[in-house]
Amino acid sequence: MSAGHHHERAASAAELRAHALEAVLAERGLVSTDAIDAVVAYYEQDVGPQNGARAVARAWVDDGYRERLLAHPNEALDELGFGGMEGHNMAVVANSETVHNVIVCTLCSCYPWPVLGLPPSWYKSEAYRARVVAEPRAVLREFGLALADDVEVRVWDSSAEMRYLVLPLRPAGSEGLGEEELAARVTRDCMIGTALP
């Protein structure tokens, strides 16, 4: 179900039911259409992986920020204005030459909304939730990421209240790039741990 087949099979009935639920509440004046619009727009325009990428790029160019981000992630992210729902307790886990981090939520689909926005469909899929805690290298290979055997893979199952952000290694050859150019190199998947910048 990670991609489309569920959606295609069930779209019309599911869509009608969801639509009707909103309509019932709007007709009674209990939920406003503009409140729904505002929440959708918030996660489509204001909050997304561009936030996490800014924090990563800042950490790459500013050692003091990197230290704060790892030691006091909530406060360090707040410096950039990032925080809130599904990011109340942030942990930033740094990749190194010997450690590669990847995040998942096996019980639900918990995800650090304030820094990454809403998760991609594959992150919510049964396949990812089931497999990445049991065979992470096989899953990472599907993403085109082949790690050396001596790299320790650390899988963080964020089924409790902590929400994780992976701090990737700054790519080789990026010494001349400024903070904004660096941020552009940081994809969402780099910060989940299924890609490298």
Partner: peptide
Amino acid sequence: PVVEPGGE
């Protein structure tokens, strides 16, 4: 598989 079309 985890990686499927549309999954992004």
